[in-house]
Amino acid sequence: MKFRAHVLVSLKEGVLDTQGKAVRVSLKNMGYGSVEEVRIGKSIMISLEATSRPKAEKQVEAMCDDLLVNPLIETRSVTLEAI
């Protein structure tokens, strides 16, 4: 079976997001006064083969632990769909 995983990587609360801060300032300067905070993350799409959904999930979680996410500064959420 083929699956597509969507890994959303965000900076943890309390980790300084300089990019998000700069974007917040720009948005405010453009007149979007309601903006309180901007956090910028990464979106990673992975297409993969697996014999079952749990196996696909397990593989993607392992990829996150081994490379995609640095747990000191980042958190993740994974969604998976069969394609």
Partner: peptide, 16 residues
């Protein structure tokens, strides 16, 4: 830091 041989992480400079 990425190997874990040293603690911490290096983030984007505060000035960007």
């Amino acid at each position: 830091t990425e190997t874990g041989l040293l603690p911490g992480a290096l983030l984007a400079n505060i000035s960007l």
